[in-house]
Simulated scan of single mutants.
Amino acid sequence: MIDPALLAEASWTTPPAAVEQEGGLRVTAVEGSDAWRHTSYGFVHDDAHGLLAPFGARDAVEVSFRLDFTEQFDQAGVLLRASASEWVKAGVEVSDGVPQLGCVVTHGTSDWSVAPVPDWVGRIVTVRASRDGDAVTVRARADDEEFRLVRVAHVDPALQLAAGPYCCAPTRAGLTVSFTAWRRTAPDLALH
């Protein structure tokens, strides 16, 4: 379920090509949209479609979507953002023909970590980001499996963040992501 209270306080970082809100949230990305800063590629993209609401210093957010996209660099998940140069995105991105569970952490420049999840295709993926102190812990799962740890990332505890679902389509037009849930929860009690 998409939490109506989150929708009421959220705004887009960059408006998508289209949005439908019946039975969830269907978002169609603009061709060429992405989020990345400098590293390896040498470019800056700051036009991913994030629907973000305030995110506290001790808070957690979960975003769920159907993994039914297949084109190079199609991606969806959760975005935590303070500014154009301070953000974290985590979710599934298609890379070299394979869906990859990954996370990009950006403190001025971006990094990227991935792990293949081809068995998640056609399933509901949930990405959870839990913030406490100077860390954001990212976990993910398919359907009702146990959450697996994706990343523990440093985030300045003084930063004012906003968080929510995001998608982008760096290489094509026509990517539509079906988000099935977006909810705020209590932060994780422990890392392990």
Score class of each variant (00 low, 15 high):
1 M>E: 11
1 M>Q: 11
1 M>Y: 13
2 I>M: 07
2 I>W: 03
3 D>W: 08
4 P>Q: 06
5 A>K: 13
5 A>S: 14
7 L>P: 04
10 A>D: 09
10 A>P: 06
13 T>F: 00
13 T>N: 00
13 T>E: 00
17 A>D: 03
22 E>A: 07
22 E>P: 00
24 G>Y: 02
26 R>S: 14
27 V>C: 04
27 V>P: 08
30 V>I: 04
32 G>C: 01
33 S>F: 03
34 D>W: 10
37 R>G: 02
39 T>Y: 05
39 T>R: 10
40 S>P: 00
40 S>Q: 02
41 Y>R: 10
46 D>L: 10
47 D>T: 14
52 L>I: 06
53 A>K: 04
54 P>F: 01
55 F>P: 01
61 V>D: 07
62 E>Q: 13
62 E>G: 11
62 E>R: 15
62 E>S: 13
72 Q>H: 12
72 Q>T: 09
77 G>K: 07
77 G>I: 07
77 G>P: 11
79 L>R: 09
80 L>T: 02
80 L>M: 04
82 A>D: 12
84 A>R: 06
86 E>S: 14
86 E>F: 10
88 V>G: 02
89 K>E: 08
90 A>E: 02
90 A>M: 01
93 E>I: 05
95 S>N: 09
96 D>P: 03
96 D>I: 01
96 D>Q: 10
97 G>F: 11
98 V>Q: 08
99 P>T: 03
101 L>N: 05
103 C>I: 05
104 V>H: 06
104 V>M: 05
105 V>R: 02
107 H>T: 04
109 T>A: 01
112 W>C: 03
117 V>Y: 00
117 V>W: 01
118 P>I: 02
118 P>G: 07
119 D>I: 00
119 D>E: 12
120 W>C: 04
120 W>F: 10
124 I>M: 05
127 V>E: 04
127 V>M: 06
127 V>L: 06
128 R>E: 11
129 A>Q: 13
130 S>D: 02
132 D>N: 05
133 G>E: 13
135 A>I: 13
140 A>E: 08
141 R>C: 15
142 A>S: 15
143 D>A: 12
143 D>C: 12
144 D>Q: 15
144 D>E: 15
145 E>W: 04
146 E>P: 13
147 F>D: 09
147 F>G: 10
147 F>P: 08
148 R>C: 15
151 R>C: 14
154 H>T: 12
157 P>G: 15
158 A>D: 15
159 L>D: 10
166 Y>V: 15
167 C>H: 09
169 A>Y: 10
170 P>G: 11
176 T>V: 14
177 V>W: 08
179 F>V: 10
183 R>G: 14
184 R>V: 10
185 T>N: 06
185 T>C: 12
187 P>W: 03
187 P>H: 02
189 L>E: 11
189 L>F: 03
189 L>G: 15
192 H>N: 02
